[in-house]
């Protein structure tokens, strides 16, 4: 990958332009790292606060006014609201999969059509997550389709 750094004019806002043939996993990772930087999430499990790298989060789920983040094996509670996560991680690998779930696109192994326009995403940890009909275009957009 070629990296070109150009100096911008005084007063001009710094910007990063990515020119690629297609938005593949590598580019998504670069964008995600740029966007997320060193940002960490705080997860609570059994009263213990743990710092979680957002790249390790499979999905966020809102259940009974609580938000949980699901990693490969562990589940943590987070004090962030789903809409805050959605805002914070827009333009990263995360996308809204349903009203209660925000999913990491890099953790999806495959998808299959489910009931009535919904899709079911099989994740790399073996879990299955439903993608609502109205959020399928968002997934396609994330994948550059």
């Amino acid at each position: 990958m070629k990296i070109i750094i150009e100096e911008c004019k005084p007063g001009e806002e710094d910007q990063i332009i990515i020119r690629c043939k297609e938005l593949d996993g590598h580019i998504l990772k670069v964008i995600s790292e740029l966007k997320m930087g060193q940002k960490k999430l705080t997860g609570i499990k059994d009263g213990v606060i743990t710092m979680v790298d957002p790249a390790n989060v499979f999905y966020f789920e809102g259940v009974d006014n609580k938000v949980f983040l699901y990693c490969k094996q562990n589940v943590y509670e987070t004090k962030l609201k789903l809409y805050e996560i959605e805002e914070e991680y827009s333009n990263t690998n995360f996308f809204r999969a349903s009203k209660s779930v925000i999913l990491n696109v890099t953790k999806i192994k495959s998808v299959s059509p489910a009931y009535n326009g919904r899709f079911e995403a099989l994740l790399f940890n073996g879990e299955k997550v439903v993608i609502s009909r109205q959020y399928v275009p968002e997934l396609k957009k994330k994948l550059g389709l």
């Binding site: 996993g25 590598h26 890099t106 998808v111 299959s112 059509p113 899709f119 994948l143 550059g144 389709l145």
Partner: peptide, 25 residues
């Protein structure tokens, strides 16, 4: 149903390309 299956196939193709690239990296 056919349209949904086509969409799933398209997404899966893209995902497998993406995952392959991720593995290589």
């Amino acid at each position: 149903k056919k349209k949904e299956a086509r969409t799933a196939e398209l997404i899966n193709r893209k995902l497998s390309r993406m995952n392959l690239r991720k593995d290589e990296n």
